[in-house]
Design a protein around this nucleic acid. Structure first.
Lengths: 371, 371
DNA sequence: ATGAAAGCGCTAACAC
DNA sequence: GTGTTAGCGCTTTCAT
């Protein structure tokens, strides 16, 4: 009899149709009692509790979360609003969010703004999309009733003008915001840029060129600040003729490098503000008949997947994308619980990855000839 | 007065606290009437309808979707269960799903199984994860009450043993399933592989090597079938000494190519079953002092992002990932509506992208010297 | 310790 | 054409 019961238990499948009411009847208790044991919200007599547990297993009961959400006015769902899931940092950030959120029994409602299609990289047009953003936020908040929103940017820019009358936590990941009503978690630009040039200094480089990103953008400015700090701290002067303004794209890396190559005295190293421009620079160097890193060292930023398939493998800076996601989720969750830590702008450290495109400045001596 | 009212309308913010009841009171009608106009579900007198519309705008009312879901037993949400969002095909597939689903006013509940962490590419262990998968499905279905599930695979393998007692549509994207209870939408492997070797034939190649993926996997077998078909249709024999078994990873592409290079007569072209192995092969060729495509043509599969940063740019096969996502969503939506088209296994065509690693076999004549 | 019952916000009979 | 109202499945107050 007991054995039979066990077997019966096994073959039962979860079913959407069984409710708390039926479980209650099966266990011979009230629905309230069932609710108490499910949520551990009140003491119930051990034997009753067991009867309930058995009834749950026997019936394959799974609580209807939407009914619960309606009742408790809390969905245990966080809305993840991404500018574009195809944007290179986005999946890794979502990965981090997902990992953290799952631990707390929250779910993710994903909304993809699909900005890459409509923008074609015209960053300036982004602000035109504010309405679309605010509409999505409204839907998430007042329609789906998510408990918090994580906004995942792509462009590491300052987000402003987002609905400020919102009554739920909003944390911005990757991008930043001047608006102190929101939390933002982003990565270190300045210190790591300084570290990158220090790495070049250590290798003996002094004539260091930099290919910047779009000059007015926040990351370009912050990276530049780090670079300048490293120079001034080392008492070395940065030759302004050696800084060329790119636009984050491959082609600009290529053309900036061409310009650099036409100078009277060549740089011995170049810091490109992202990997795309770094590849462009490498190609330009190669086409000019020079070699990386023997003639010119190059260092990128982002550690894109392709960095490791380049020849030689690209020395670059890795952003802890997953860490950003985790911390963003952590922050959202804490704010929901009201244990907000206060600090509104969090920064995750970045990391320099030394690969093969940077080498010591030694004229006419190949890397392979070094000890 | 009118003008003032307009201004007042403008500054009103959406608010989560206003319910249909308050709108009804504001408009001087019943909640039923409000519901009728919101959902266009019954005729209402034009002036009443207008009063309701005004009241909605004035109050900033947004329907509480969780209440509605509970009532109509339908969440307008589709659960997207991905094996790992970091898997290369996944974001593009989600992109396609998102685009399609948004049009029909559905939302996406994202669940990331994060298999990459736990698997380390031990495909065989995947089956051990069945429990985890089924648990996630149960949660989505019976907890969150999604209306359908799209399972996004990474490994293009046959999915079996998934909960078969489910009462909601389940469509498998990218992977396939023998289980005819589910729809699956995947991409073309066989025809496009045949087309790739035909491309090589057209270029005059006859000694064509192939570096396969893990031999027992479904895509490896299907691609091989396409290759063999192309050979037999052309009346050319495939030298079995020229097919080497790789494992999808870079290193295997490299080592297989090394073996190939040690043969008495070299192949003039090699078809690697993915881009990773293609790069490995290219590197081996380069290290052996030979040149791509002058000495050996190479062709990959997947059109990974890095394909375009290689030297020369990789000729490869592009899978229409976004199309897979769109069709998967379309299928799920149709099944929800009961307008299921019947066909359980859908296949999206792939596309050959001719870039610079394939060239005509002409000994001692460089590509650039051709007309 | 337990249960009866109200009510979360909405929709859809059903009655008028 | 419009309103009344029951009820979706759950939690939680309030009695007991």
């Amino acid at each position: 009899m007991i054995a039979m019961k066990k077997i019966t238990d096994k073959i039962v499948k979860p079913s959407s149709s069984v409710t708390i009411k039926e479980v209650a009847k099966l266990a011979g208790v009230s629905t309230a009692t069932v609710s108490y044991v499910i949520n551990n919200t009140k003491n119930v007599a051990p034997e009753k509790r067991q009867r309930v547990l058995d009834a749950i297993e026997q019936s394959g009961y799974t609580p209807n979360l939407v009914a619960k959400s309606l009742r408790v006015k809390k969905t245990n769902t966080i809305g993840v609003l991404v500018e574009d899931i195809m944007g290179y940092p986005v999946p890794a950030i979502i990965n981090g969010i997902s990992e953290r959120v799952e631990k707390s029994d929250y779910r993710i409602l994903l909304n993809d703004l699909r900005m890459l299609e409509s923008l074609f990289n015209q960053y300036d047009q982004i602000m035109q999309q504010k309405n679309k953003i605010n509409e999505a936020i409204s839907l998430l908040l007042f329609g789906a009733r998510v408990d918090a929103i994580i906004y995942v940017g792509m462009f590491d820019r300052n987000i402003t003008g987002i609905l400020n009358e919102i009554n739920k936590p909003l944390v911005i990941a990757y991008s930043t915001s001047d608006d102190k009503n929101f939390h933002s978690v982003t990565y270190d630009n300045e210190n790591i840029s300084a570290e990158a040039v220090r790495h070049l200094f250590d290798l003996g480089h002094r004539r260091i060129a930099v290919i910047t990103g779009l000059a007015h953008t926040s990351p370009a400015r912050m990276r530049m600040r780090g670079i300048q700090r490293a120079f001034s701290e080392a008492g070395i002067v940065l030759d302004s003729a050696l800084v060329k303004n790119g636009d984050w794209e491959y082609a600009s890396g290529y053309s900036c490098m061409i310009e650099l190559l036409s100078e009277d005295t060549l740089p011995t190293a170049v810091f490109a503000m992202n990997d795309l421009m770094a590849v462009g620079a490498m190609d330009a160097i190669g086409n000019a008949g020079l070699r990386v890193p023997e003639d010119i060292s190059v260092i990128g930023f982002d550690n894109r997947e392709f960095a490791v398939y380049l020849h030689p493998k690209l020395t670059t800076i890795e952003i802890d994308l997953k860490g950003i996601g985790q911390l963003a989720a952590e922050t959202a969750l804490n704010t929901i619980l009201g244990v907000d830590k206060g600090e509104s702008s969090l920064i995750i450290p970045s990391r320099l990855i030394q690969r093969k495109t940077t080498a010591r400045v030694v004229t006419a001596v190949k890397e392979s000839a070094l000890p």
